[in-house]
């Protein structure tokens, strides 16, 4: 088995090496890939869309159709993970454990017992619960809001600097995952529940697609934001810039929610109890 695999891999490597002399040299300005479509994008992005970052304008405007289905792929992957792993438990369980936070006393409540009301004083825990590390908890509490703010900045400033919906969404999701790692899944569910995460990921794709259909309603092609000018105000060039921003918000929402829901399902193996 190993020799066959080695031979296959070596054959693939040999074929790729055989093709290497045909490739352009590294950094060659006359490489064929740089001569056909991309000069148009570079030279016309300012006058077409008023977006200096060419990557953003190509991503969300010139090739917006492509990006819409990339977002749908991410949404579908989130749903697939949910369907593979999620296990629903019956509501009634024999015993529940609650911890009184100020004193650290653990209450064991048998079936039919009175459950404490949801408040800051009591938190529900599992049998393998371990105390959180104070330093990790405090550091995470300091970092999370700034990480979220930075994510929003990355989404909003993607027109002028590296960034955009994908990066900002992933950073926002990573901030929530950091919260979930340093605290536990139950406290994260209070901030962003599973249902909200799935709804947000669907809403992100919906924002993207409905922007496209709105352009069709206004008389243009699918995702031709220039026709949104009467709605957004300003000339068609600025309308394309604003249209890119709307679409980036949709992408950011979808990516953030999918990252968080992937983490929810993987970290608790679908039971949604304790997490890492």
């Amino acid at each position: 088995m190993k020799t066959i695999a080695l031979l296959t891999v070596l054959a693939i490597g040999a074929f790729l090496l055989y093709g290497t002399p045909e490739f352009p040299a590294w950094g060659d300005p006359q490489a064929p890939a740089a001569l056909h479509v991309s000069p148009y994008y570079i030279e016309h992005t300012i006058e077409d869309t008023a977006v200096p970052n060419v990557v953003t304008s190509v991503l969300a405007d010139y090739r917006g159709y492509d990006t819409m289905f990339e977002t749908s792929v991410i949404f579908a992957a989130g749903l697939a993970c949910l369907m593979l792993l999620r296990r629903y438990q019956p509501k009634t369980q024999e015993t529940r454990l609650y911890r009184h936070v100020p004193t650290g006393i653990t209450l064991r409540i048998a079936q039919g017992g009175k459950i404490p009301e949801a408040s800051d004083e009591f938190e529900r825990i599992d049998s393998q619960w371990v105390p959180y590390d104070l330093i990790v908890k405090l550091t995470a509490r300091l970092i999370v809001p700034f990480a979220q703010l930075f994510a929003l900045y990355v989404i909003a400033h993607g027109h002028h600097s590296p960034g955009g919906g994908f990066q900002g969404g992933v950073i926002y999701g990573a901030a929530l995952i950091l919260y979930a790692v340093s605290f536990d899944l139950r406290s994260t569910f209070r901030r962003l529940s599973e249902r909200t995460a799935i709804l947000l990921s669907a809403a992100g794709v919906l924002i993207y697609a409905s922007t496209g259909f709105l352009c069709m309603l206004m008389g243009g092609n699918f995702l031709d934001y220039g026709y949104l000018a009467p709605l957004l105000g300003g000339d068609p060039v600025m309308a394309r810039s604003h249209g890119i921003f709307i679409v980036e918000i949709g992408v950011g929402m979808a990516v953030m929610a999918v990252m968080v829901s992937l983490y929810y399902n993987l970290a608790s193996a679908g039971r949604h109890d304790e997490g890492l």
Partner: peptide, 26 residues
């Protein structure tokens, strides 16, 4: 490729490592 590097820094070094650790933990 600054945009690609930015995405890889947040996705590859951030989220996917967490997902791998979650898989190993479970």
């Amino acid at each position: 490729a600054v945009d690609v590097a930015f995405t890889e820094a947040s996705v590859g070094a951030g989220v996917s490592t967490v997902l791998f650790v979650a898989a190993v933990f479970r």
